[in-house]
Simulated assay, not measured.
Amino acid sequence: MAELIAGTVAELEVSHKAPFGYFLTDGNQEVLLHDNDVTGKLTEKEKATVFLYQDHQGRLAATMTIPEITMSTFGWATAVTLRKKYGVFVDIGISKDILLSKDDLPDEWFYWPQPGDKIYCSLKFDKKQRLFARLADETVINTLSVPAPAELRNKNVQAKVYRLLLNGAHVLTDEGYIGFIHQSETTDRLRVGEAVECRVIAVKENGTLNLSMRPRSYETIDQNVDKIVSYMESRDGAMPYWDKSLPEDIKQRFDISKGDFKKALGQLMKEGKLDQKDGWSYLKQE
């Protein structure tokens, strides 16, 4: 008879009731099914389909909640707790969180999944036969993915980071498309499991995507207009900057380039909302 193994699903028989749950058996081993892991009434000799895991003392235990994630199946787990000494504990859908070891994560902890992030993983044993989460590799992700259609170009997609590289990150979109975000197209450093919204800048022949987290040009202009107007409103509608101001002064005040500053001023003047005179800009009173 095969040995019962954590991380797998088994059909076991109810051996007897205990004060804190039930003991199940395969005729050779007994496993505790705690009351917290029971999803219905059980009677002696009844068969129960359970998922096997290791409790906090390392003992084999059972739950009637069958997770999607097992030793042989992958699924999305939610990061719950980050422990710099150990790694990240993830929720696979049972009462006990499973550790994703720091050995399988980037060297710097700020690249690790944060609580609420999603990672695609299965389960594995370490050298001491303890149950751990295992990140999906490229082969698994490729099996999961589908080719992206060409008409997706310039559309927005939602995605999750599954792998970090020196020059960017690989992501999987909610539709199952594989994408790459070059570091020049990011707006901040990314972490494993992070959910991101991206713009498709290219659909490659193999159906994968090149993505950007940077806004479109018109979105950038709108953001800069809002920044400039907010600053002027805080100064009664006037500011000592105009389209001939020095680039370094504009950069220091608004953290944007002179070119982007002039585009934003041009937008305001086109809309009839701004005048310039003698080195100053003024909002027109409505």
Rank of each mutant, 00 (worst) to 15 (best):
D107T: 14
E108S: 12
E108D: 15
E108V: 10
E108L: 11
W109C: 00
F110N: 07
Y111S: 07
Y111I: 01
W112F: 05
W112A: 04
G116V: 05
G116Y: 01
D117K: 11
D117I: 00
K118S: 02
I119A: 02
I119N: 09
I119G: 03
Y120T: 06
C121A: 14
S122M: 00
S122N: 15
F125D: 10
F125Y: 15
K128C: 03
Q129Y: 11
R130F: 07
R130G: 09
R130I: 06
L131M: 03
L131C: 06
F132S: 13
L135C: 02
L135Q: 12
L135D: 09
A136R: 05
D137A: 01
E138A: 09
T139K: 13
V140I: 15
V140C: 07
I141A: 07
N142M: 09
N142E: 13
L144R: 14
V146D: 08
P147A: 11
P147K: 10
P147H: 06
P149M: 13
A150W: 08
E151R: 08
E151M: 10
L152P: 03
L152Y: 10
R153C: 05
R153T: 11
R153W: 06
N154A: 09
K155T: 15
N156M: 05
N156W: 01
V157A: 01
V157G: 02
V157C: 04
Q158G: 13
Q158I: 10
Q158R: 15
A159Y: 04
K160L: 01
K160T: 13
K160A: 02
V161I: 08
Y162K: 07
R163A: 10
R163S: 12
R163N: 13
L164W: 11
L165M: 09
L165Y: 11
N167H: 02
N167A: 02
G168C: 04
G168L: 06
A169E: 03
H170K: 13
V171T: 09
L172N: 12
L172D: 12
T173C: 07
T173N: 11
D174S: 08
E175F: 07
G176E: 13
Y177L: 00
I178N: 09
I181A: 05
H182W: 05
H182E: 04
T186S: 05
T186F: 00
D188S: 14
D188Y: 15
D188V: 04
D188E: 15
R189M: 07
R189N: 03
V192Y: 01
A195H: 08
A195L: 04
E197H: 08
E197Q: 12
E197G: 05
C198W: 04
C198I: 03
R199T: 07
V200F: 06
V200M: 02
I201S: 12
A202I: 09
V203A: 11
V203Q: 13
K204W: 14
K204C: 13
E205H: 14
E205I: 14
E205G: 09
N206Q: 09
N206E: 13
T208Y: 11
L209C: 08
N210T: 12
N210W: 10
L211C: 02
S212I: 11
S212Y: 13
S212A: 12
M213W: 05
P215M: 03
P215E: 05
P215N: 04
S217G: 00
Y218D: 14
T220M: 14
